[in-house]
Design a protein around this nucleic acid. Sequence first.
DNA 1: CGCATGGTTTGATCCTCATCGAAACATTCT
DNA 2: AGAATGTTTCGATGAGGATCAAACCATGCG
Lengths: 224, 224
Amino acid sequence: MREGPDIARIASLVGDPARANMLNALMGGTALTASELALEAGVSLPTASSHLSKLMEGGLLTVASQGRHRYYGLAGPQVAGMIEAITGVAEAVGPKRVRPGPRDGAMRIARVCYDHLAGERAVAMLDRLVDKNILVRDGQEIRLGPSAASHFAAIGIDVYTKPRRPVCRACLDWSVRRSHLAGTLGAAILDKILAEKWARREKDSRAVVFSPPGKQAFERVFLG
Amino acid sequence: MREGPDIARIASLVGDPARANMLNALMGGTALTASELALEAGVSLPTASSHLSKLMEGGLLTVASQGRHRYYGLAGPQVAGMIEAITGVAEAVGPKRVRPGPRDGAMRIARVCYDHLAGERAVAMLDRLVDKNILVRDGQEIRLGPSAASHFAAIGIDVYTKPRRPVCRACLDWSVRRSHLAGTLGAAILDKILAEKWARREKDSRAVVFSPPGKQAFERVFLG
DNA sequence: CGCATGGTTTGATCCTCATCGAAACATTCT
DNA sequence: AGAATGTTTCGATGAGGATCAAACCATGCG
């Protein structure tokens, strides 16, 4: 009956279906209002509000009040990583995989993980960037290589403008069980992909689907 | 109200204090009997049995019957990784850190993570092994370097005898937020450390405490 | 065999917590 | 100011599930 950090408290927060749905929705990276989350979770507004305050108190969420809207978002990358880890286990032990459906395939290839790209394509990208010595792995940390600044500047990404969070971080991928790129650079790359319309977010899903020309452009820039 | 893998189901399994205590105990790596786990969780035997069957059904545990004993253990490294991830969040958001006590410090330095060593000392070891090119990072995977076989053979660890699991794996450390070494090699090294009596398991804890000469020996072999 | 020990099943109890309707509060728009 | 929309609080209801005592299996020992 030893006592460590209160793991049961955190897990039970995620353990309610309504709250799990909310967190899943927030894994999309965009902050959502209480009403949107209520809809997402399939519960009434008061119920959702109650859940949200519990998640807030548990430190899993942050909120930004803008006028009469309150935008809820995940508290940070660590929380996102935890959700991914739980998802991985659920995926592995879940015998309920009745419909591996097309959307599921799309998720494996590319999806949003909090604020950056995940999935096979993202894993391949990080591998290639490390191969080309543009990024350098240093344990769990990832550092910028000598040619990083010029390389990313060439495609319109300034790696020095957002000093708050670490620029690069590794994030474990639940579908491939390898790392992909997180941090501000990861976020900037996802922005770029969406801004250039190389890919679009699937409606009501974390899946990211590339158009054929978009896929080519992505491969030319990041896998070439 | 999209439906992914059943994350709430898994999280709610971990979300009960009794079950969380059991899982925590099993993070020590050794399989335990139902009675031991009941004691660990602070509940009666029937209650524990009920919890254990739930965890089994959820796919988080495996059991091995030996005579009239039933030894329960974690289902695999992925489950262990999930627990570590949840622990990390609980640690981060937990304002309840009333007593950072000495045992907590020992845990940060070195502890057992399922079947291998974790903590600052383990992170330092992996860094050094990679620096010396004995191991080679390849994304989340870790491969053996050219001199690996001879290097480990010299200290009595045969890296080719256990082909079932991957030899090396990276595992994210919750206290340092960097990777340490898992896989069969990680397990073999922990075995070595305990066999040579360089360190001993703290009673009723995951902490691993090195004796002064043991620490020197460890540093000579793995950090030299 | 019969007895002890480890483990599970059953049944009953109790309590937490998810849920929603109604009302209160807040903010923005007209 | 008043209406409309977004959000939280309050109160009551209900269901799920954690708990243990007692009875029930199973294995090992003499």
